[in-house]
């Protein structure tokens, strides 16, 4: 565990708490992609298959349980109490391609052909693209509530910090997963446009609005 990894995990945790705060304070899930949230739950469920069979640390176990439970809870909130605030016409990304594409990549690139490894690889490639429906919706709407942009910033920062974590690990001679690094770099790159507007507008107190 290094400082980049720990800060990255904390940003991931923070992103989910910010999203929950947004939904609860505004009593609305407007601007949030339901598809992205379902993809994240799928990512956690397929990645943490070893949750109850392979104990490594209290930290990992607690975080895994939190990620699964919180993303399931967010989906529940979007599907039931705040269903009326969800606009499915804005959430129009064709996510079948993501689910299918990640499945193909998972069958081509696993380190070993075991159920766990194939699912783990699937989760890595699915996470790589899971933010696309959310970014697509942002693009369509052209603007976003400030708290929603803080959510996206925390999520993007988590990914960027993981890259710093891998560089650190590599230099320390620790094991680094090639597939995870490659997918992580692609995933972080997807946030570039968002980061630019976040830094040049939102952090200067302006509304998030696409040019």
């Amino acid at each position: 565990m290094n400082i980049f990894r720990l800060t990255g995990d904390m940003m991931h945790l923070a992103s989910i708490l910010i999203l929950l705060l947004k939904i609860h304070t505004s009593h609305s899930c407007a601007g949030i992609s339901f598809k992205t949230q379902v993809l994240y739950l799928t990512v956690f469920l397929t990645r943490y298959l070893d949750l109850f069979t392979n104990f490594t640390s209290v930290y990992l176990t607690c975080m895994k349980i939190f990620f699964i439970a919180s993303s399931a809870y967010i989906i529940y909130l979007m599907r039931f109490p705040f269903k009326d605030t969800y606009n499915k016409h804005l959430d129009a990304f064709r996510w079948e391609f993501l689910l299918g594409g990640a499945a193909v990549l998972a069958l081509v690139f696993p380190q070993k052909y075991t159920v766990r490894e194939v699912f783990w690889t699937y989760s890595i490639f699915l996470e790589m693209l899971a933010i696309l429906p959310q970014l697509f919706q942002l693009q369509r709407t052209g603007e976003a509530a400030t708290i929603t942009t803080h959510y996206l910033f925390a999520l993007g920062a988590y990914r960027a910090l993981y890259i710093a974590n891998w560089i650190y690990r590599y230099q320390m001679g620790e094991h680094v997963d090639g597939v995870a690094v490659l997918a992580g770099i692609v995933q972080t790159a997807l946030y570039c446009d968002f980061f630019y507007i976040y830094f040049t507008r939102v952090l200067r107190g302006q509304r998030f609005k696409l040019p």
Binding site: L60, K112, A180
Partner: peptide, 10 residues
Amino acid sequence: DEEQTEHDEL
């Protein structure tokens, strides 16, 4: 004997 790959990241 098959050894599990260790994935220690979240």
